[in-house]
């Protein structure tokens, strides 16, 4: 069995499960609408298709948030998603507010700038969630979440996330299942935070490699040594493991100093769905 085949999912079941997840976890809060940041990438596209199935096209708002240096393809692909799904959309340029902030500083490296862009988009999405009385549907996949390849309180921020337990490869399977526009499937994954950015170049490994390694390490409880024996370089496997560990904080709310007998999230423990 090829290792990547282990990640094969039953798209029929998984998509209907995710559609119900979005429908139920939004409507039980008393709301019925969703806001999604549409980047033209595969993740937000799949999230948008799921949200549309769950809530109906009239209840989904795709927000396109280009910066002046964003790739043209990003906008074009996002508009294809809007056209195919029939959801509402709005283009909110973030160039002005982002540049206003950048102008306060003489020099900013690309990581700082990228984080500001991601968080400017977060502000826009949550503002529109108030405007439309909607919840923000997240678009971070499991590969990103585990690797910590995202901006904390930026693109990682949402109210609910249908695709956070799916590896990048599984997102592609769903994308094909939903018949999303071919250009979105074909193009190289990119956070598009600076010109010419490529996820796989920046990470230093391919998503397929990462998916297989992560699946064995964490889903199947393989040790790093056992994963190396599957035919991966030691440096790669250990590097990925360290990345996951180092970025645990991004997957949690802030830690709280316990003082009382009942501390929020430590021994004051209720689910979000309390009473819902």
């Amino acid at each position: 069995m090829k290792l990547l085949e282990k990640l094969k999912i039953d798209c029929d079941f998984i998509s209907s499960y995710l559609v119900e997840f979005v429908r139920q976890e939004i409507t039980k809060t008393g709301l019925k609408r969703a806001v999604i940041g549409l980047s033209g990438g595969i993740d937000s596209t799949v999230s948008a298709y799921i949200a549309k199935e769950a809530l109906g096209k009239e209840n989904v708002y795709g927000i396109l948030m280009p910066y002046k240096l964003s790739s043209k393809d990003s906008i074009e692909d996002a508009l294809k998603v809007v056209k195919e799904t029939g959801i509402n959309h709005k283009i909110v340029e973030i160039t002005e507010p982002a540049d206003a902030y950048f102008s306060k500083f003489e020099e900013m490296d690309k990581v700082r700038r990228g984080n500001v862009l991601a968080r400017m988009r977060m502000i826009t999405l949550f503002d529109h969630s108030q405007l439309y009385q909607a919840l923000v549907v997240g678009t971070s996949n499991k590969t990103e979440l585990l690797l910590g390849y995202g901006t904390w309180y930026g693109d990682m921020a949402s109210s609910l996330n249908p695709i956070g337990d799916l590896y990048k490869n599984q997102i592609y399977q769903l994308a094909r299942f939903f018949n999303v526009p071919e250009s979105i499937i074909k193009k190289k994954p990119s956070a598009d935070l600076w010109v010419g950015q490529s996820d796989e170049e920046e990470l230093g490994f391919s998503y397929d490699e990462a998916d297989v390694i992560l699946y064995h390490l964490f889903d199947l409880h393989y040790s790093t040594e056992e994963v190396i024996k599957l035919g991966f370089k030691e440096e790669l496997v250990k590097g990925i493991f360290e990345r996951v560990k180092r970025n645990q904080f991004k997957r949690l709310p802030p830690i709280i100093a316990k003082i009382s007998k009942r501390t929020v999230n430590i021994d004051f423990r209720y689910l979000r769905d309390w009473g819902l």
Binding site: Y17, E20, F21, Q24, E25, K28, L160, L271, R272, D273
Partner: peptide
């Protein structure tokens, strides 16, 4: 059936 904080009962 139903969901609780993302956990789906099937």
């Amino acid at each position: 059936v139903g969901f609780e904080d993302g956990v789906g009962f099937f």
